[in-house]
């Protein structure tokens, strides 16, 4: 696991608000419309997705991630 401390554009907003959408649909607009799935099919996919997602979310948080935050907080306190 590497600690990258570069300064990407990813975090440079100053107001904490979400960015305005700038990119307009390109390939999506060119595609033919897709018919809505029947409700039960969308529901099934949703259930499966959430089950998979919740399983990962419920895994114990790796100690090194918690340690990272502790170290950052300790470093800040020591300033």
């Amino acid at each position: 696991m590497q600690h990258r401390l570069d300064t990407p554009e990813d975090c440079k907003r100053t107001d904490g608000e979400l960015p305005e959408p700038e990119r307009q649909p390109e390939s999506e607009a060119a595609k033919p419309p897709v018919a809505q799935l029947p409700g039960f099919a969308a529901q099934l996919i949703g259930q499966r997705m959430r089950a998979m997602y919740d399983t990962i979310a419920q895994e114990p948080v790796p100690e090194d991630l918690l340690e990272l935050i502790r170290q950052l907080e300790a470093k800040e306190r020591s300033k």
């Binding site: 696991m1 600690h3 990258r4 401390l5 300064t7 990407p8 990813d10 975090c11 440079k12 907003r13 100053t14 107001d15 904490g16 090194d64 991630l65 990272l68 935050i69 950052l72």
Partner: peptide, 13 residues
């Protein structure tokens, strides 16, 4: 981890 580091580095924003 990278996300947390970036967020911390730019938390003032």
């Amino acid at each position: 981890q990278e996300t947390l580091l970036k967020a911390w580095t730019h938390k003032d924003s």
